[in-house]
Nucleic acid binder design. Structure first.
Lengths: 325, 325
DNA sequence: TGTTATATGTCAATCGTTTGACATGTCAAT
DNA sequence: ATTGACATGTCAAACGATTGACATATAACA
């Protein structure tokens, strides 16, 4: 790889001059500028960003830690974050924690060693203290860590309420709610809070089932849904905490000979693209994924530039009614 | 952020000594080692990988360029690549080209500026010459660029053949094939070659429709499928070049009142997780995505270490029969 | 007593780039 | 003839870490 010295030598100018055209500072004649550019072209020169980062103490890289990109919610989020970061001249290191605390910790340290300008945390298997050592800008998605670390989430309580009320409104009398691991301190647990509140408020019978949200473990979902329907054949409403789970619910109900939405009404969460690939299309609570991604990046930027920022960022959700309710 | 100098000063040893414990070289007493580690802990010191990369001329970063992580095939591939890279101590910069040649070119240059140790190209909107300037290790997925750049693909011809023959075997007499943009020089076009060969060989009527493979443009797929069924109501077999398109085919057929698999048999491609979220589950040609991801990374490593490697890497596919045929 | 393994230190160069300070021109306008 | 804008050069320090060469010191062993 050619260096700035090679360019200088070939173009017959000083390194300083090359640096000046590269960074557009000081006086440079058009002739020299052209000559330097031509030489860079010839040598296929690309300035070494590693050296620049070292000097500038800024890498223009952010890290994104999520459980797994294969989950539609995270793959869409990742896409938005990356795109938005790219527009602002930043790159993104992707880290799949696979919900493994050791790996998650390891990733955080790796990102620090690589001096990323900020970390977006979408995976939360660690204890709060573990984050304290993080000096770099950080923003969490769907988890509130401390009063000075900004977080973004959609309005989970409202979402849970919306879902629960819609099922009741549609006439459901026994509703199951499939959620993630409530032991993890995630804000998505508030969906469950809202669900329970509505159920007890309206006096509707309900069942809550926790899962570990591992999309890969397809069998887990199949089993859970199957058992649910066996143990509670009279269920007529299901509120799943993701569209994918809702999809499994649809399949299990159909397999059990129950019609959707006539016998059982199902509502998912997220409104990922996949919700429309399924048949029937999944009714769902839409999270503004694009906005979450952009806001996450913006909050990193604001911290980097020491601009003021909001710590609590709760985005609105909306009900998208499709064919499963 | 603390530097190695800070650690040395606080621990009351020389910088060289700290470096020695860090890199495990030379003689170090247990006492000193412990003292240094303790100090690093206290200062929350993480060695600056940027400085290391600069000196070592190796970043331990690879770049992955794909059209869009939101597409299940790529999100699964990304997950495998990242995981495998992580196991070997590498990080991954993710780049979504969005099928934009300008962006793709820009990404390649960005990755070069950042001195990544290798690039895995899964997006192919550029002309062959554009890749010639790439001095770093590179491997392409599903596209053959030149005789010295290794590529990986699954056996597309065999996959197309398998799909076509299975539909005919199941009694289809008029088969539509929905493929990607054949203008792009991708190896997946060989599926279409195989399809056509089988069709003409067996004398079965067929229709070929190109799409631009943009998963986000849901309406495009809906429209295409709808028009296809209107113009050719007698179609009884569909071979889609992805499971997602197959999903849309299922929906359109059902909407048109055609039963699956009785009236129309549908086969997809890839065998992504989503193929099993759909109902009925999609019959498909399985690509070994995990293996593709690992091999891509391995080929980068081999080039890096100047080890011998295979240029042509064609992985086997298999037919997974589910409910749509 | 001398030899050797162990332990640590000093020093300087290196990776590729940026930047400030300063010097030395040329050329045109006053 | 003087001034000032423009153009380019030289030089050195800095970013944070690694590494080889070399010096020095202690402890153990023969």
């Amino acid at each position: 790889m050619a260096t700035i010295h090679d360019v200088a030598k070939i173009a017959n100018v000083s390194v300083t001059t090359v640096s000046r055209v590269l960074n557009n500072r000081g006086y440079i004649s058009e002739a020299t500028r052209a000559k330097v550019y031509k030489t860079m072209e010839e040598l296929n020169y690309q300035p070494n960003e590693i050296a620049r980062s070292l000097l500038r103490k800024q890498s223009n890289v952010i890290g994104l830690i999520i459980p797994n990109v294969s989950h539609p919610f995270f793959s869409e989020l990742t896409n938005y974050v990356e795109n938005y970061a790219y527009e602002q001249g930043f790159k993104m290191l992707l880290c799949n924690s696979q919900m493994d605390p050791v790996k998650e910790k390891d990733y955080i340290e790796m990102l620090k060693r690589n001096r990323v300008d900020g970390i977006i945390m979408g995976s939360h298997t660690l204890q709060v203290e573990e984050y304290k050592s993080l000096s770099s800008p950080i923003v969490t998605i769907d988890r509130q860590i401390s009063s000075d670390i900004p977080y973004i989430s959609s309005d989970n309580y409202a979402g849970g309420k919306l879902a629960a009320e819609m099922l009741i409104h549609k006439g459901c009398t026994k509703i199951a709610h499939i959620c993630g691991n409530l032991g993890l301190r995630m804000l998505s647990n508030r969906r469950t809070d809202a669900f329970q509140a509505v159920m007890s408020d309206k006096g509707v019978e309900s069942i809550i089932i926790q899962t570990d949200m591992n999309v890969f473990d397809q069998e887990q979902y199949e089993l859970i849904m199957q058992r649910l329907l066996e143990e509670h054949p009279d269920i007529d409403g299901i509120f799943a905490t993701s569209d994918i789970i809702a999809g499994y619910a649809v399949k299990a109900c159909t397999a059990a000979g129950r019609r959707i939405p006539d016998d059982v009404k199902i509502i998912g969460y997220d409104d990922v693209n996949a919700a429309r690939w399924m048949m029937p299309e999944i009714t769902t609570i839409k999270q503004p994924i694009k906005q979450i991604g952009q806001m996450a990046f913006d909050l990193i930027m604001k911290q980097m530039n020491a601009e003021p920022f909001e710590v609590d960022n709760i985005l609105p959700v909306s009900l998208i009614e499709r064919a499963t309710t």
